[in-house]
Design a protein around this nucleic acid. Structure first.
Lengths: 230, 230, 230, 230
DNA sequence: CATGAATGAGACTTCATTCAT
DNA sequence: GATGAATGAAGTCTCATTCAT
């Protein structure tokens, strides 16, 4: 559910989300007539590269994907890759960011009009699982440990893991304020624990082909128990 | 224990365990002549290689550690590496197993005579944190995602992550039986969630230099809340 | 003295030399209306490119300077480079020619009204050293070995080295005719020796931060000794 | 005479000189039985690589010679190159050193029993020209400007140019002491001038196919005039 | 005429593994 | 059993040049 082969159905949603973002950018670029042609061409290349990168990073993982493969898959020259990304790592981080933005956008919808704390947790998890179902392997790939990416240690960029942990922390703070979550919880730590648990649990569920609904149910219950004010 | 898979009770505090075996060997050697000497030499090489591998895998990670480095660090010839390990991956898995065994042995002590469920969780976590303090980086390295290790996908071996998740599952089952943990918990899933949470939480705590005791306290509370029967 | 950072003082002289050529062109263009605008625009681009090329070839050397760098430094598009120069080598040779013309123009002034043979040598050297002081690195760059420039061997163009060696040969012939220089000297060979000596000596003086006046004095004496009729 | 096509006659002398040096090394290694086998194999590889490097650097120049070409020419694997040289530059410098040692050894013979200052100059030049005749292109290649070799500027190693300039400086000092050379000469500067002159003059003579004996004669005369005490 | 995105051959270097000694 | 020299496929990235806009 959270790993393995990329599907065809995937790309539609992906491209949609990406398009929306890019449309925004283009829209911002404004009414200019000339610049847009150039810009469009370059953006098109970048889009193709990023889509190819996503496919390959998901399918093969970071170390098994060569810039060359990405270029070929994207149907552009080898050099074009380096026109858009400083290096392989930058490309991976761009993929990772894209996935994060995409999931967050996805979740935002999921949470629309959700009232209770328990429902929110369930809907977020449901969103993640649905995203994982329609974008197989993307989350697993995007959550790749930063430590295996760079030679010199720190990357400097905020990886999705941290980003999402922070997101959870914000939510937990809100629930603490509303009295739904226990006031004694360290929300940042709890955020990290939850993200770690989701990552591991998702991988386990995918590997052993567990029933998604049951897992969702269970995880919801466990997280609620962990956080709920009593 | 001559080649291949590292052993069960063996690697106490690695070096200690090895010493014990060697003492055994030496004792045995008593009457023996040639064969034993050879065995000792081989074991000695393997021990040095494994110790070097651990140092380097911890310090630099899997991809940044080359068999040559391990051999040099161990003070043996490069070819010797392949007398003891089929390939680099096998060596890493041996390290990983060693660390798992070591931690389990460490935890076994920690749990001696612990009665209540809450105390058990606290003591296990305390054990993990203490082990991490005395063996910095080892757990993080040993928990390296299987997906970044091999080219062809599956490894076939049970990685520490799974192993420890199973361990937690067994404990949870026990606690369910004694009525301390909620009967409705899926212990295997919960085991994975906990391992993921510990991994992520530990990395977060280490990265941000959090106070270990506070983290320990918090994590204990959260896990207890998650599991406890009410 | 003969190397290092390009200065502002440089550009004035450069532009002057180039301007003279351009003025000719513009004058020729005469009454034309449209053509002139285009021509001016094109010349402007070429001038900017050449100035940028000089800065970069001096600062980084031939192999470390890419056409792209030159274009960016010149503030024109990358493609524009190839509108003005057949390839990178042609651009370098243009730079080299420009420097040669410039130095010759510079020296012509220096030699105005110099009578004796010894004074002439001293004034030429002084001119070279002054030029080097106000155009740091330009001569060193312009004297780059032809052999490191092209893949296929010969370049076909006369490089400054040869050009200047020929210049010295002409002078020496003159001095031979006037009885000041020894008649038995092979002036072409001597010209090359002198140019080689100046190049090497200048590099040495620059590298070791020698006192310019002393070096000038010494070199003058040595060359005079070498050539003088006795 | 000092450039262009490498010949067959070349290699014999080269290898001889190299062998002598290496025999010395091996001899030093002493009577050891075991180590020698290994050492011999490695030295053999290095010798083949260095011979290949010399051939290619001479024939094509530094920038047109790839490590890969050197390995193939030497009949060893690509990786072997990096077993012996840290990088391409290190290999070039090794070649350069070898040539310097070789020429110095060559010249030492030439100078045996030469008494007068004029004879010494003539014999040194004759030695250089003879070396150039039997090792075509080697000196021109070895005298490659340090500035075109490395990206970051300084190399740190003393190039043959400097080395030989220093050699001349020592000789000139000696001649000054014996009263043969003018006492007012700055020997270090003069050394550089002479090396530059020889380099340039040699290149000119080679390019224009001048008669070696005439050039030798002329250069001797000019240098003697330059240095002689009167 | 001007632009700058695109190109792809090819540069240098690394490293897991083998094999002669 | 031990050694370490040797291997060569593969990796990442550059850059002189072209060409669609």
């Amino acid at each position: 559910m959270m790993m393995e082969e990329p599907t065809s159905g995937t790309e539609k949603a992906t491209e949609m989300a990406v398009l929306e973002i890019e449309e925004g950018t283009i829209a911002e670029a404004g009414a200019g007539g000339l610049g847009n042609g150039v810009s469009r061409r370059k953006l098109e290349s970048r889009r193709k590269l990023l889509a190819a990168a996503r496919r390959l990073f998901v399918e093969r993982g970071y170390h098994e994907t060569r810039p060359q493969d990405i270029s070929r898959e994207a149907g552009v020259g080898h050099g074009t890759f380096y026109l858009h990304f400083e290096d392989k790592l930058a490309c991976f981080l761009a993929f990772t960011d894209e996935a994060a933005v995409e999931l967050e956008y996805f979740l935002a919808r999921q949470l629309d009009g959700v009232a209770s704390f328990e429902d929110a947790i369930r809907e977020i998890l449901r969103g993640i699982f649905e995203y994982s179902a329609t974008h197989p392997g993307v989350l697993a790939a995007a959550l790749t440990d930063a430590s295996v990416l760079s030679k010199g240690g720190d990357i400097g960029k905020k990886m999705p893991t941290t980003r999402w942990a922070d997101g959870w922390a914000v939510l937990i703070e809100k629930w603490k304020a509303s009295g739904e979550a226990s006031p004694e919880i360290d929300s940042r730590l709890a955020g990290h624990l939850i993200v770690g648990a989701i990552k591991q649990g998702g991988a386990y569920a995918a590997r052993d082909h567990l029933d998604v609904d049951k897992v969702l149910d269970h995880m919801t219950k466990l997280f609620v128990r962990m956080l709920k004010n009593r």
